[in-house]
């Protein structure tokens, strides 16, 4: 039988990575945001360990500024699959004075997640955090390893990464270090969407076209919400939109779309001329925005 299918080599690779994390680490955790990539991870983890349950908990670093649809979906998924979910709140880090809320027009809690994440890693002594980052998303992520070692401070030393050869994953670390693991490193946005379609997976409704109150700024479509700063002269419009990527309401821009089901979404991605992270306000801050955040321990 020939290796002719596209998705399956990637699926098999991801399952292999999941099994390696579980075998090589004592306390792995899957970082779950409620977005399509982390939902895909959950499906792949199910496949890796069936008929046993997924042998690690999920953890959500909650900024408090999520789309309500994502949170509802998260809770339902966890219940249906009988998984353990840990939630840690950015609000708690703010209240404890560990981080300061950003202010102004472009304020977002996105980068504040890092402190809460690092605290949680220490609290639970997690030695491996599994995430849904993909190399095609962004230039700095293109250099990321599948097993990416972080020091005591959660920092990414991009100039001193371990080479990764063949499909052998070196998970040896020192006490205090941890590893970020990216099972879908080699997937593209279209691969993820095609997989969701093929697997008939359920995803939060905000990924499909819906009517939403929005406003326009800098050529991007922002959600009208209590969590998003809005100037008086920024007019609220009601439009058919959907989200291609789901982070915080304050850092995720929508796209105009009529794609109301998975088939039309896949078609739309196929035809798209804008990259997925083109709708991430947090990346637009500067050319090296992602690299900077990663060095500080961001996912």
């Amino acid at each position: 039988m020939k290796d002719t299918s596209h998705i399956n080599p990637l699926e098999n690779e991801a399952i292999y990575i999941f099994r390696e994390v579980t075998a090589q680490f004592e306390k792995p955790v899957l970082l779950f945001s409620g977005g399509k990539d982390s939902i895909t991870l959950v499906r792949l983890a199910q496949k890796a360990f069936w008929p046993a349950k997924i042998p690690f908990p999920l953890m959500h670093i909650d900024t408090g500024h999520n789309f309500p649809e994502t949170i509802e979906f998260r809770d339902r998924l966890v219940e249906e699959l009988g998984l353990e979910l840990i939630v840690r709140n950015v609000q708690d880090s703010i209240d404890a004075g560990k981080v300061k809320e950003e202010s102004g027009k472009y304020s977002s809690r996105n980068s504040l997640q890092t402190t809460t994440l690092l605290d949680a890693i220490e609290e639970f002594k997690f030695d491996a955090c599994i995430g849904g980052a993909r190399r095609d998303e962004e230039k700095a992520r293109a250099k990321e390893r599948i097993f990416s070692v972080r020091d005591d401070f959660g920092q990414w030393d991009e100039r001193n990464q371990r080479p990764e050869l063949f499909d052998m994953l070196n998970g040896q670390i020192e006490l205090g270090q941890n590893v970020r693991v990216f099972p879908i490193s080699n997937w593209t946005e279209l691969d993820v969407w095609s997989y969701i379609e093929k697997e008939e997976m359920e995803i939060p409704s905000i990924y499909f076209a819906h009517k939403r109150k929005v406003f326009l700024r800098d050529g991007l479509i922002w959600s009208h919400s209590d969590y998003v700063f809005q100037e008086d002269d920024e007019e609220v419009l009601e439009r058919m939109v959907r989200f291609r990527t789901v982070g915080d309401m304050s850092c995720t821009a929508a796209v105009f779309s009529e794609a109301a089901d998975i088939e039309s979404v896949v078609q739309e991605i196929r035809d798209s001329t804008i990259s997925e992270r083109g709708a991430r306000i947090d990346d637009k801050r500067s050319e090296a925005a992602m690299e900077k955040r990663k060095q500080q321990g961001y996912f």
Binding site: R135, E138, K139, R141, A142, K143
Partner: peptide, 20 residues
């Protein structure tokens, strides 16, 4: 493709990057 700040500054590629 040159994804890291140091690479863009020096106009060279430092680390293996994957392009799709």
């Amino acid at each position: 493709t040159d994804g890291l700040v140091a690479e863009r500054e020096q106009g060279i590629t430092i680390d293996v990057a994957h392009i799709y």
